[in-house]
């Protein structure tokens, strides 16, 4: 199990979500994807969100990133409340890795273009050196720099997506099922990479997954979601001892062992 990096100071809240509701559509077509979700993640911690498809776990991440138009409640990052429209400075602190590496890279852009453009948008000027550094960080190396997505395997694509998320040097990384589209041996490589990056860069993770064992490996704390609501927040230790209190969590646990 991965301990959060040692910190002398008292735990500081890095991401706080309070009473968050997200819905799609209006009037009679309104669908509530998330209802009154609240949780807090401290600096350097790793927090898991588990649940089945349609439980709203990914929607929470998208709402934090400002990718869903309709939400209510309060989100604060590094104890500062987030505006309805995200400022550019927000994206320097929070970044996201998407689920499907086959869909999250532009099919006509080379790795170099993807990373170069991201760095340019964040106002970096020594782009060439930084692209090489980023590729090294995610274990790809320079020979992948000018390849296009179709010349990369799933694991390599996900590494590029992680490099892109790391480009602005964020403090929080939102991981939306980063390994569910990958083979198990590749999943192990990506999870190890994420573990290393977290200690190296002092990152805070919020990880969504349907796989309890992946969340158990990566996180210290997790929230179980069902039908848009958080039914239970518990320590991973509790999960390991199979001491979940909510019946739904027990059901999930039983199904994944």
């Amino acid at each position: 199990m991965v301990r959060s990096p040692k910190c002398e100071c008292a735990p500081v809240s890095m991401l706080n979500v309070d009473n968050l509701s997200v819905w799609f559509g209006n009037g009679r077509d309104r669908v509530d994807a998330v209802r009154n979700a609240s949780f807090n993640v401290n600096r350097g911690a790793s927090f898991g969100l588990v649940g089945e498809s349609g439980s709203g776990k990914s929607t929470i991440l998208r709402a934090v990133m400002g990718l869903t138009p309709n939400w209510s409640g309060a989100i604060s990052v590094d104890t500062k409340p987030v505006d309805k429209t995200r400022q550019k400075s927000f994206y320097k602190v929070v970044q996201m890795v998407f689920q499907d590496p086959y869909a999250s890279l532009h099919p006509r852009h080379s790795v170099d273009q993807v990373l170069g453009e991201t760095l340019y948008l964040h106002g970096f000027r020594d782009i060439d050196a930084r692209v090489v550094k980023l590729l090294d960080d995610v274990g790809l190396g320079g020979k992948f720099r000018f390849r296009y997505p179709h010349q990369l395997s799933g694991g390599q694509r996900q590494r590029v997506a992680i490099a892109r998320a790391l480009a602005p040097k964020p403090s929080i990384l939102l991981l939306d099922e980063p390994t569910s589209a990958l083979d198990v041996s590749v999943q192990a490589e990506i999870l190890n990479l994420l573990t290393d990056l977290r200690t190296e860069h002092g990152l805070t993770y919020i990880m969504v997954s349907h796989d309890l064992s992946v969340v158990g490996h990566m996180c210290e704390q997790l929230a179980v979601m069902k039908d848009g609501e958080i039914v239970e927040i518990m320590e991973v230790e509790t999960l390991r001892k199979a001491q979940a209190s909510h019946p739904y969590s027990q059901e999930l646990l039983a199904a994944s062992i």
């Binding site: 990133m65 990718l67 998407f98 999250s104 890279l105 948008l121 892109r164």
Partner: peptide
């Protein structure tokens, strides 16, 4: 609505770009 457009939006890219 694809992920790669979301991804570039998350880098603060404007509509024009």
């Amino acid at each position: 609505s694809s992920d790669y457009i979301s991804a570039i939006q998350l880098q603060g890219a404007g509509a024009m770009r």
